[in-house]
Nucleic acid binder design. Sequence first.
DNA 1: CAGTCGAATGCATACGCATGCACTGTAGGC
DNA 2: GCCTACAGTGCATGCGTATGCATTCGACTG
Lengths: 332, 332
Amino acid sequence: MASEGRVTSFDVARAAGVSQSTVSRALRNDPNIGSRTVKKVLEAAAALHYVPSSRARALSTGATNRVAMVIDLDNPLWPLLVGRMHDELAGHGYELGLVASHGERDVETQLADGSVDGVIVSASRLASTLPDTLRGRGIPVVLVQRHSSDPDVDAAVADDAEGGAAAARMLLEAGHERIGALFGPADTSTGREREAGFRRVLTEAGVDLPDRWVRYGGFEMSHGFRSLAEVTGGRTAPTALFCANDTIAIGALNAAHAAGLRVPRDVALVGFDDIETASWPLVELSTIRVPFDEMLRSAVSLLLERIGGFTGLGRRVVHPVVPVPRSTHLRP
Amino acid sequence: MASEGRVTSFDVARAAGVSQSTVSRALRNDPNIGSRTVKKVLEAAAALHYVPSSRARALSTGATNRVAMVIDLDNPLWPLLVGRMHDELAGHGYELGLVASHGERDVETQLADGSVDGVIVSASRLASTLPDTLRGRGIPVVLVQRHSSDPDVDAAVADDAEGGAAAARMLLEAGHERIGALFGPADTSTGREREAGFRRVLTEAGVDLPDRWVRYGGFEMSHGFRSLAEVTGGRTAPTALFCANDTIAIGALNAAHAAGLRVPRDVALVGFDDIETASWPLVELSTIRVPFDEMLRSAVSLLLERIGGFTGLGRRVVHPVVPVPRSTHLRP
DNA sequence: CAGTCGAATGCATACGCATGCACTGTAGGC
DNA sequence: GCCTACAGTGCATGCGTATGCATTCGACTG
C-alpha cells in the first residue's frame, strides 16, 4: 500500500496491456478506441487509482482549465463576486484562482506565466494598465463590475449611470430637497458613473448638490461612518444622502445610530448594489439592485469566447439595474 | 509587435548567446553562473519580455507553488477565511485556488491531480473522508477552523469548547437563569464542541437547558432568524440565547427586530467568532473572539512543513479564544 | 613547464500527457 | 480470392524547464 511515486499513464498501459497513447485516448473518450479496450483501460485506471497529472496535461495541451480573478480585498464586495464567479466557472469546468491586486508588477507576471487560461479583473481602476497589458500579451481578459478606460478590453458591467439617476429620482420622489452624497473613488468607473447619473437628475430637477454635503472616499464602511457626521454636522443638514454603494450606506447607518440619529427620520439614505445585508430587517436599506448573477455570467461567457479564440474588438455588456425602495429613503 | 507564439528560454538563450540551461540557471540565481553571463541573460530576458512558463516548471520540478482551499460557500465565514488565507499564503510565495465542496467526488480528483502542492480544508464535516483520502494519496492537507474525526490530519482550530464555556459564563454572570441555545450542526467539530462547553458550564452551575429552548441548524442567518420565534414563542421564554456563531446571532437579532422585541431587554444574545459585523454600533453583539489571523497562520505553517516533506504524526494547534462582552448579553 | 583543480558552461534527458502519423488486421467489394 | 478501406493501436515526438553529468578553459601548484 506504500505509494511508490506517482501512478502514470504508462503504469495503466502496462496493467491494461496496451500502449500509453491508447490509455490517453481511452480516458479522453477518443472515438477511435474500441469499446473493449476502453473498458480494460478504465478498469486498470480505477484499480491503480490513476489520476492524470494536470501539470503534464497543461504543458502538453497548452490549457490549464483555470481562470484567475483579480480582486481588491479592501472592497467589501469581493466575496459576492468571487462566490458567484466560482460557481459560474465550475459550471463550465474551470477552476478559480484568486489574486489580490496589491503590487501590480508581480501580479502581471503571475498572470502571464501561463498558469491560467484567462483572467477576470474585478477591481480595476480606470487608469490601471493591467487589463491592457495582459491583452497585449495575448491573455484573455474580461473586466467585471467596472470597466477601464481602454475600450478594447471586454467588460461586463451594470448600468451605473442609470442607477445613480434612479437613486436621485427615488429621493426626489420621496420629497427630499436638501440632498447630499457620499460618492465613491473617482478613479473607478463605478464611482464616477454613479455620481454622474445622480448629479444629472438632480440638475434636471433643479435641485442643488452643495459641496459641503458631498464627500468622496473608498467603497468601504469607514467612508460612510466617517463622512456622515461631517455632512450632517453643519448649521443646515441634508435630509437625505446618496451613498455610492451599500457598504458606505451601512457605514453611515451605523454612524447615525451611534450618534443617536434615526434613519430615515433624521437622515435618509440610499445605497447601491443591493447586497444581502441591505435586506436585513435591522437595515432595510433602499438601494439600487445590480444583477450580479447575470453580470458574472456575461463576464464568463465573454471570457470563454476569448479563450476559445475570439479576437474581435472589445465588447461591453451593460446590465440594467433595478431600484429597490425599502425604508431608508423615505421622508417621514 | 505581433506575438509569434510564446517566448521560451531557448529564445532568450539565442539572444544572449548562451545555452538554454544557462538561461535557466541564471534566472534562478544559480551561483555557478558567472556574473557577466547573468547580466547578459537578464538583459535578453527583459528585452524579450520573457516569462518562464509555470506549466513547464511545474512539470519539471513537481511543485506548483499553489495551494487549494476547500470552502463551503454556504457558511458565511468563508470570505474571512479566504481573504486572510490569501494574504498569508502570498507572504510565502504561494497562490491560492478556490474549491467549493459540493460534490466531494470531483473535488477529490481536482485536488489529487497534482495541480496544487497542498490543500487547506476549511469546511470539513466530522465524517468527511476527504482529508484522510488526500493524506492517503500523499497530498499535504491541513484542516482549519474545524477538525475531523481523524487525528492523523493536521488541524489549526480555536478552543471551541472553552469558548462555549465562556459564553455560558458570560450569560450567567449577567444574571440570566432562563437560557436557551441555537446550536450549530452536530456533524461539525465547531458545532459540537461549542455546544459541549456551553452545556458543561450550565450544568456545573445547576442551570437547566430545556429542550424547548434549544434548536439545531446550520451556521447561517436563516437558522437564527427562524429559530428565535420558535424558542421565544412559548408560555415562558428564555431571557438569553447562546448562538453557535455570530451569523446565527445576527439572524436572531434581525428576527427580534422584525418581531418588535428589543435586544437585550426582551432577549439577550451571545454569538461566537467576533466577525466584523458584530462590532457595528447597530449590532454590538457580545461574542467570543476567535483569533483568525493566528489560526490561519498556524494552518499555513503546518501545511508548509508538510509540503517541505515533514511526515510526522498529525498535529492539532488549538488557539485560545477571548470573550468580548458588548451589549447584547446583558440583563437589564 | 607539466599537471591538477575548479569555475563556468553546454549537452542530454526527465517530467507525463497528447497527438500526428505509420502500421496491423479484418471486413467488404468485385 | 485479391485488393481496398477503414477501424483500431502503437510509435515517436513535442510541450518548456530543470538538472546531473560531461566538457572546456584558465589559473595555480610544485
